[in-house]
Design a protein around this nucleic acid. Structure first.
Ligand SMILES: [Mn+2]
Ligand SMILES: [Mn+2]
Ligand SMILES: [Zn+2]
Ligand SMILES: [Zn+2]
Lengths: 152, 152
DNA sequence: AGTCTAATGCTACAATGTTGCATCAAAAGC
DNA sequence: GCTTTTGATGCAACATTGTAGCATTAGACT
């Protein structure tokens, strides 16, 4: 049994899943909670570590499939970051799709909640399903001198 | 010797390379020409096919390295597409970075030359090096009925 | 032609995902 | 509670995209 589990948060996660007719499994519940607790979008790898930390056994493939399902159901959304791995974040209600900032020094993705990623007017015939705006550069933390580089 | 080689275009490519102090090799010349001729950004794989078509022997790794060099030198630029592979396009002079459209049906990336990907104002401390705006949906061709799906 | 070294071509490896299939367990029916 | 059903899991094998090391080749310069 996972340590430091908040019963209320767990129940909320369970209901999110059940409402879509999905089976409430430890992996899905734990992933939702990890996403909800995180201030920034998480990679598959980071989520795996979070599950390990919570004492939840899991398989790489199961995690991929749980994430696919959460995205399909609109519970989570996928972000293309700019590196080669997807990142995931919870979709909060009334969430206009916001822009993200990718720090090329520390590798973090920061949500720019106040910067919307709105689709501009396009040539006739194009149907836009969603817009992704990613800014690349150095984040506030890394802009300061003396911060160690963490990624290529 | 490659078929259908335009001497003038070849010379232009050679000069682009030589101007940066790089060695003029068949791979680099052919890649530049393929990018210049293409109406849309090309993946590594598509470029490989183009080289094969031009009768230019090459190695996967060499192509990756040629592309890295072209990007470093500012001759080409990399685009994150939304699938898992980079795309490359030539950097034309006076090129404001434009947005791209990713068609989820046919998989193509279309340049939206008229839609600029400008960076909005960010929280203090953030330094933006470049902005990427990608719109996902169905392109004009795929919007019409009866068009075969090419990609997941 | 001879020299220097950037670029290439291998081979091997890493990172990120996907597919198929046998097994398990969550939810429903009894 | 016990059984049944089938969605979800775990495992092994594979696919795709990109990198690293190193011996060899060939572009540029004299
Ligand atoms: Mn976000
Ligand atoms: Mn473009
Ligand atoms: Zn940073
Ligand atoms: Zn299309």
């Amino acid at each position: 049994m996972p340590l430091h589990e908040h019963p209320a948060a767990t129940d909320a996660a369970r209901e999110l899943i059940a409402a879509r007719g999905g089976r409430v499994t430890r992996t899905r519940v734990a992933v939702i909670q990890a996403l909800q607790r995180s201030a920034h979008p998480l990679s598959h790898d980071e989520l795996g570590a979070a599950l390990d930390g919570a004492g939840i056994a899991h398989d790489r493939v199961t995690l991929y499939r749980a994430l696919d399902w959460l995205v399909e159901q609109g519970i989570a959304q996928r972000i293309a970051g700019g590196e080669r791995a997807w990142r995931f974040e919870i979709r909060r209600d009334g969430d206009h799709r916001h822009a993200h900032f990718h720090c090329e020094r520390c590798g973090q993705i920061v949500c720019l909640e106040d910067v919307s990623a709105a689709a501009p007017t396009l040539p006739a015939g194009f149907a836009v399903a969603r817009a992704e705006l990613v800014l690349h550069g150095a984040c506030a933390d890394c802009g300061r001198e003396g911060v160690e580089r963490k990624e290529r």
